[in-house]
């Protein structure tokens, strides 16, 4: 009997991953470093800010021992900017994720640094990129934007400036992006058969995974027969090409182009 769970992560599991993200807090009490598997948390010394994992920040916030500093992108002006970008500037794509840390090697221009295991600068993906701390860039949505904003609005609403407006903008953004994801699926049938999911957040993927896979699988099944006959044709042509002692390169290139268009999905 198969596991009665759909493929992919459940929303609660995405939320769990999101709780590993670092957030900036302003502590109200001192707290010594805690030894964790991922290393030591920084010592909390009021009034100095520190970056700690979200789950710990939420715990301290509930105990009124710290205030959470919302990340810069969770500000009404930043969110308004992103909504404007998504609806007017670039309505075809999702807003870009924050840039990955530079991998350039300053001592040897033109080359990348050699990755060293455990090097903090070499962690390139969430939740290890500090994209939710107070030093994160504004106007760029990190991977866990939806979970982070929901959790912060629910538990630390009093720390977020203009939380009512932020809540409204997050809802707007969610609707805009869900509509975009649907349009992306529809374009699978007509355009080049590709859709761009760059910049889509974790929770959006968890929600949309079922139907995205369903649509892609349906398109694949409908096109399977045509694909098989196309491949056979290609193989036959290749055989003929070899038997005929090869043709001009230009001619072959042209044929390749035609085939690509014929594929149509």
């Amino acid at each position: 009997m198969a596991l009665p769970l759909p493929p992919g992560l459940l929303p609660s599991e995405v939320n769990f991953l999101c709780e590993m993200e670092l957030v900036t807090v302003v502590p109200r009490q001192r707290l010594d470093p805690i030894e964790l598997l991922s290393g030591k948390t920084p010592a909390l010394r009021p009034p100095y800010r520190a970056d700690i994992p979200l789950w710990l920040a939420l715990l301290l916030k509930k105990q009124r021992r710290a205030n959470i500093v919302p990340p810069p992108w969770l500000h009404p002006s930043s969110l308004g900017e992103i909504v404007h970008h998504e609806t007017h500037v670039d309505p075809g794509a999702f807003s870009a994720p924050p840039p990955v840390p530079s991998r350039a090697d300053p001592s040897n221009p033109g080359t990348a640094r050699v990755p060293v295991y455990g090097d903090a600068a070499m962690t390139l993906s969430p939740p290890f990129v500090p994209s939710n701390t107070s030093s994160a860039p504004a106007n760029l949505l990190p991977y866990h934007w939806f979970e982070m904003s929901e959790v912060l609005l629910a538990h630390a609403g009093d720390d977020i400036p203009a939380s009512g407006e932020v809540r409204r903008l997050v809802r707007d953004l969610q609707e805009v992006r869900a509509a975009k994801m649907r349009e992306g699926m529809v374009s699978l049938g007509s355009g080049g058969g590709v859709t761009n999911l760059k910049g889509v957040g974790g929770m959006e993927l968890a929600e949309g995974r079922g139907f995205i896979l369903g649509v892609v699988d349906g398109v694949r099944r409908i096109g399977a027969g045509a694909e098989v006959s196309r491949r056979e044709e290609e193989e036959e042509q290749e055989l003929h090409g070899r038997a005929g002692g090869g043709r001009g390169d230009e001619e072959e290139d042209e044929e390749d182009d035609d085939d690509d268009e014929d594929m149509g999905f």
Partner: peptide, 30 residues
């Protein structure tokens, strides 16, 4: 339709099926 496409050479019908499926899928999801 997929079974019939295996039996008949109807590339146009395949096109129509695919376009129908994705267009309706958008509405279904909404």
């Amino acid at each position: 339709g997929v079974r019939m496409l295996d039996l008949f050479e109807e590339p146009e019908l395949g096109d129509v099926l695919r376009r129908t499926f994705v267009t309706r899928a958008g509405d279904v999801v909404m």
